[in-house]
Design a protein around this nucleic acid. Sequence first.
DNA 1: CGACCGATTGACACAGCTCAAATGAAGTGG
DNA 2: CCACTTCATTTGAGCTGTGTCAATCGGTCG
Lengths: 255, 255
Amino acid sequence: MESGRPYSRLLMRLDRMTNLRKADKLLVAALPLTVTNIPAGGQIARFDEPQCVLVVSGFVCGYKRVGMSRRQITSLFVPGDIAGLHGLLLPSSNDSLSALGAAVIAYLPCHALEGMLDASPQLAQALWRESFSEAAILREWIASLGRREALARVAHLICELVVRLQAVDLARDYNFAIYWTQMDVADACGISAVHANRVVQELRRLGVVEWDAKHLRIRDWDALTKIGEFSDSYLQHYTRPAPPIRYEMDHHQAF
Amino acid sequence: MESGRPYSRLLMRLDRMTNLRKADKLLVAALPLTVTNIPAGGQIARFDEPQCVLVVSGFVCGYKRVGMSRRQITSLFVPGDIAGLHGLLLPSSNDSLSALGAAVIAYLPCHALEGMLDASPQLAQALWRESFSEAAILREWIASLGRREALARVAHLICELVVRLQAVDLARDYNFAIYWTQMDVADACGISAVHANRVVQELRRLGVVEWDAKHLRIRDWDALTKIGEFSDSYLQHYTRPAPPIRYEMDHHQAF
DNA sequence: CGACCGATTGACACAGCTCAAATGAAGTGG
DNA sequence: CCACTTCATTTGAGCTGTGTCAATCGGTCG
């Protein structure tokens, strides 16, 4: 596993989403990537030409501003994820992208992605599945924000993050680097920064996590999933082998 | 406009999403639809064979159960919408579908939809755009649930609904039939039924809406958008003419 | 060393929840 | 056509999770 390449974790993800042939992997490896360092919390610029953003390391988030000052994070992207896939077909997205901590990203021109979809039905299918999977996560967040209290929201978010990081081999032993502040957690969970801090302390006090500025370690996974009412069923594509290709996709021409 | 057909409002939507040729419209008209009446609040069955659900009249919602009894509505579908599009590529969805009030729906076998995508790149693109548009709505709901108070959430929901209904000619003069109870509103906005009632009364008291059991009429659109911090920019495809086809899509083979 | 930013703590206020009961509207069966 | 049921709406009274404000502490970096 050439985990040094910017696209290596993307490959891990796509391969699990839809089994890839060797030729597909070569296509991914040939994508023109513009690797860029983003400082902590830095805005990720949107250029005229539609581009997607591949996360190489660190965390990236999509967020909206609500009212004057309140921020709501609407999605989180970890290494191997592509942010802004909807840019492929929808001209303008309504929310902004920024890094949480410091991050390394790679810009990916849409036309190159489209060329790839053109060349491989397997890859095309994997990317579409990816975007549906993203939507499944959005729905789960809605359930969390609407019907869970703060402690459960944070616990749920951590559970989700662990599963997603494990899929790209970044959370061995329930242990991973975090690239966010408690304020970021607050903005993701729809609570205030002060309350986020109280929740973090409560999770520590309960002995389910060790959580310092740079690192998070889950000490009691079962307890955490219980607190967060977490079930990984909406993340099948992160935990289970790729489902079979639907029908004879190769004949299908779409997009 | 043959607004008597089950698919007529779907056509209105798709045509605005991506301009359709006459041949495309014939393809849509030829879809095999199993029209079904659903009683008020009735669960919408999922069969073994993957099927999508076209809403013909009434409202349909996707929801999740959280904890033992709490329900969170994650998406709303109005006439012309297709629910369960993700079933095309993802085997299992994690949430359930039900009607809110009484509704008429049409089951639509996935293989027929895929045949359609196969036959027309324009339609394929329209459907993909549709699913991205759905995701944009999910993100907006996340912002609402996370960072707006109850009054604004409800106001925002109503604004969104009006725009979506107007796109299928069901909300002339800001006036439309509602197929939900206040409890449904509560479950969509992540608040309790009691509080939903208080919010409704407050909106009435402010003189921005007339709202009885079966009907809702907006008396002051500007005030309502202000209360709900609503901007229709995330619903472009409902309000503006279709964006051009991206690149030379006809060459693209995907899915 | 100072400046800055994030984490932490405490006190208080309030939006929204729960419980419980009353009212109203619509449908059902005798 | 009237009792009866059922379900949605409405109202009131506490209770609690979470927000706001403000201050302190601690680490990091120039």
